[in-house]
């Protein structure tokens, strides 16, 4: 089914009172498209052609982040057969910040594709922009980290994340908080070291480096092997670009990626509303006080001539 690019038309013009809105909106939304992340931020390039689905990264993350013991041990490959809700594969949860899923692909010599999945550390994170207590921070190293001490638990960030990443510790009555991958910021990234899952991978599926270098590496790999790779680095441009990017030899939509996600960061969809706010704040008081004066003038006239209508 064809998805529609909702942004391709003019962005305002509700006719009538919205003339002012029209100009304000288009200015703001074009400004919102320019931020491409911090120049020297780090990232990870994941090459699915190399992944064998050993789940070492899952285990490494569990240990690094001090997460509770998993329901099934990390060497139990039966998790790949698990199916949740109507055919859904496993997803990140309060106990697992990263998940590897298996996708059966027809006529692929190497067998099924294994896809590792965690927070993508967006350049313009939807989670960050939607949080009303500013719990999220995009660090200059590129990680999207999160302060659980201020989280109120509204879960808007979960609504907003286009990749369905943040999980919530519903089970805790006293201190439920958002749980998600933080790119090992506290323990590694801050000191310039690669994340635990990257280091743990025996197949060197993941390359850690500056985001802009990773794009070059990715393109070089595609060019040197054009028959193998799909000509696309997923995450280079998606929703404004992400720190984690992906290479694959099968079309991305076959291995659980949303390929209709668009290149606009999520905030650009929201800007349309945000720009009417100052307008309402400035125009409404004058407008409605004016109405009031008019209405009461009518009434004053009516009192003089009781035959006035209504």
């Amino acid at each position: 089914m064809k998805k529609i690019n909702r942004r391709s038309f003019l962005k305002g013009g509700l006719a009538g009172t919205a003339v002012v809105a029209g100009t304000a909106v288009s200015k703001e939304s074009s400004a919102s498209q320019s931020f491409g992340g911090y120049p020297d931020s780090m990232g990870v390039l994941v090459d699915f052609t190399k992944c064998v689905g050993c789940r070492s990264c899952e285990a490494a993350c569990n240990k690094e982040q001090g997460l509770p013991a998993p329901d099934k041990p990390f060497d139990d490959m039966s998790v790949y057969d698990e199916i949740q809700h109507n055919g859904q594969k496993r997803r990140t949860s309060e106990k697992a910040y990263t998940i590897v899923n298996r996708y059966k692909v027809k006529d692929r010599e190497a067998g099924p594709v294994f896809r590792k999945f965690q927070c993508n550390h967006c350049n313009e994170p939807a989670c960050l922009t939607s949080c009303f207590v500013n719990a999220y921070t995009k660090t200059k190293e590129g990680a999207v980290i999160y302060d659980p001490t201020v989280c109120v638990g509204c879960r808007t960030c979960m609504i907003a994340c286009p990749f369905y990443v943040p999980a919530y510790s519903y089970s805790s009555p006293i201190n439920p908080v958002i749980k998600k991958c933080i790119m090992c910021y506290d323990t590694r990234l801050k000191f310039g070291r690669p994340p635990a899952c990257v280091e743990a991978c025996p197949q060197e599926v993941m390359t850690f480096g500056k985001r802009k270098d990773l794009i070059k590496i990715g393109n070089a790999r595609i060019r040197s092997n054009p028959d193998k790779y799909i000509d696309h680095i997923y995450g280079e441009k998606e929703v404004g670009g992400t720190a984690w990017m992906y290479l694959s030899d099968v079309p991305f939509d076959q291995i659980g990626f949303n390929t209709h996600i668009g290149e606009q960061p999520i905030i650009s969809y929201v800007k349309e509303f945000l720009t009417i706010v100052p307008m309402v704040l400035t125009i409404w008081p004058a407008l409605f006080t004016g109405f009031h004066l008019l209405a009461n003038r009518k009434e004053a006239l009516k009192n003089e001539k009781p035959s006035g209508k209504e």
């Binding site: 922009t129 949080c131 009303f132 207590v133 500013n134 808007t156 509303f273 945000l274």
Partner: peptide, 11 residues
């Protein structure tokens, strides 16, 4: 305590 004024829910 911690303001996120750019968020719609804040409004």
């Amino acid at each position: 305590v911690s303001l996120g004024p750019a968020a719609i829910l804040f409004l």
